[in-house]
Each structure stands twice: as C-alpha cells, then as structure tokens.
C-alpha cells in the first residue's frame, strides 16, 4: 500500500493541507514564534537570576567549608538547597505564582523568571561549589602562604581555575532549564509549548503542532550542546 504512487500523492496532499491549516491559517505560526520568544525570555532571565543566587550560595557554602565562618548563612543555604532540590519545579512554580504572588499584581513573565531562577539557582550553586571544591587544596595554601587574604585567593587563584569545570556544567544547566520552562503554561504563560497546545485546541490536530514544538526544542538543545562541547574542548586545550 505504501508503495503506490497514489498513496504518496494522497499523503503529501494531506500533509500540505494540514500544514497550512495548523500554521498558516489565521497566522497560527505566530503562536509558535511568540511562544518561542517567551520561552527564550524566561530561560535567559532565569539563568541570570540562577547565576546570581547560585554564586552567592556557592560562595557561602565554600567559605563555610574552607574557613568555618558564615555558620548561620550556611545553614540557610542548606535549607534552601534541600527544599528546592527536594520538590518538583512545577510545584515551586505554582506556589510562587498562586501563593507568594497571589495578591500582588506582577507581570507573569517576571514570576516565571523568578520561579525558574530560584530553582536553577539551587542547581547552579552546587555546580559552582563543586567547581570551587575541585581546585586542589594546595592552591588555597599557596595563596595563603604568600599573604593573600581569602577574597584575593578566591578571585585570583581559585575561581579562574574553577571556570574550567564550571562553564560546561553551566551550559548543561542552561539546556535543562530551557526544557523545564515548558511547564510555564500552568501559570498561563504563552510559551512555546503552550503555543503548540493552543494550535492543537483550535485545529483538533495534535500531531503537527506538537511535533513542531518538539523539533524547535530539539534544535535549540542540539545547538547548545554543540556549543558546550566546543567550549569543553577549548578549555581542555588551554591546560
């Protein structure tokens, strides 16, 4: 049956018709395009928030582990990490939207950025901390023996070396985050996933819009992975 010319012509025709119905009619492709922009906005915003939180938490944790100072902040940081990594991202998003920001009128985009940023911050913190801890103890000692203080040793000796392990891991975190934002629809954000879903509800065709959405995510992820691999290789070469 698949081999007849007739079947192929029919299939091609159906595809063209469905494509036009799902994406061209009523400019439905805009739902995907605008959704994609929203997804990118949430992801980039959340990465920046996550980096800030992650760096702060990592420095608190590492300073505590290395020097024994910042006991109380370290305690708070550990609670933060436990809670964020111990509960589903989805639940965190809903709580932040429906509980914490329930009575205030803020832009949903901002809520999403904050929610995903806080979540990513917990993972970023552990990535940065692992990178800092991976630097040989002798490097801290060499800095200290020369009379450098903790801050100088950190910024001039430890952090530059930690970048090697941190940067690729952060790239991977970015990929995870991009995919995680697909639950933004639950707080009525029209991100890429939601865009595809809206098309589905209008055309009663699930196949095309959802596959298109999947393809767009996949292309982004492959692109980012390629960048991470390249970066890893370049960092290795500078050894």
């Amino acid at each position: 049956m698949f081999l007849t010319l007739e079947w192929w012509r029919e299939a091609f025709h159906t595809f063209g018709w469905k494509f036009s119905q799902n994406f061209l009619e009523a400019s439905r492709w805009r739902l995907l395009a605008n959704g994609f922009v929203t997804t990118v906005e949430i992801t980039i915003g959340a990465v920046l928030v996550g980096l800030a939180i992650g760096f702060l938490v990592a420095v608190i944790r590492t300073t505590h582990d290395k020097t024994g100072r910042l006991k109380f902040l370290n305690f708070l940081a550990r609670i933060f990490l436990t809670v964020i990594r111990g509960t589903p991202t989805m639940v965190q998003l809903l709580i932040i939207y429906f509980v914490i920001f329930a009575s205030v009128n803020v832009d949903k985009l901002l809520v999403a950025i904050i929610a995903f940023g806080i979540n990513s911050g917990a993972y970023t913190a552990e990535i940065i901390r692992a990178g800092l801890m991976a630097v040989d103890k002798g490097q801290y000692e060499a800095g200290a023996s020369l009379g450098l203080n903790y801050y100088q040793t950190m910024t001039r000796i430890i952090v530059p070396q930690a970048f090697k392990t941190i940067l690729p891991a952060l790239g991977n975190e970015l990929i995870v985050l991009l995919k995680e934002t697909s639950i933004s629809g639950y707080i009525a954000m029209q991100d890429l996933t939601k865009g595809g879903d809206i098309i589905r509800s209008q055309t009663y065709d699930a196949f095309m819009p959802l596959l298109a959405v999947a393809a767009i995510y996949l292309i982004c992820v492959c692109g980012l992975s390629w960048c991470v691999t390249r970066m890893e290789r370049r960092l290795k070469r500078n050894e």
Binding site: E141, L146, I157, P160, Q161
Partner: peptide
C-alpha cells in the same frame, strides 16, 4: 614567612 610545598602548588593558569 615564605613557604615551599612538597607538590610545588604553582598556579597552573
């Protein structure tokens, strides 16, 4: 007070 270590601990970067 200078210090010299068994494993040198030079800054590799």
């Amino acid at each position: 007070i200078g210090m010299v270590f068994q494993h040198f601990n030079l800054f590799p970067h």
